[in-house]
């Protein structure tokens, strides 16, 4: 009887060890596939800025420095003009 109880205790320890290992292996899987948030934020910022520069800006960015004059000159619009048309973005 004592031996039987001892065997059960050993079995329970073995099951506990296995469960622990399973939970650890799950953590490992997550670590492998995770993409750092800081990298995603940096890349997303580049995406938005680039799309704005080539696809939308009508003097908005330079207006921060040059004021209303930037909307008349549209320097970035004129510089990216050919790519805007060629890439399918609306232009004049």
């Amino acid at each position: 009887m004592i031996l039987y109880i001892g065997w059960i205790i050993l079995e329970l320890k073995y099951i506990h060890l296995n469960l622990t290992c399973m939970s650890q292996s799950k953590e490992i899987a997550i670590s492998k596939s995770s993409v750092p948030k800081i990298a995603i934020i940096a890349l997303a910022a580049i995406f938005v800025l680039g799309m704005f520069v080539v696809g939308f800006d009508q003097g908005h960015i330079f207006s921060v420095v040059f004021g209303e004059q930037a909307f008349d000159e549209m320097y970035i619009h004129e510089l990216t003009h050919d790519m805007r048309h060629a890439a399918g973005f609306p232009c004049h």
């Binding site: 995406f47 080539v54 050919d82």
Partner: peptide, 11 residues
């Protein structure tokens, strides 16, 4: 503009 647009879409 190609480099800027490419970098943007590439990200």
């Amino acid at each position: 503009a190609g480099a800027i647009l490419g970098t943007s879409l590439g990200t």
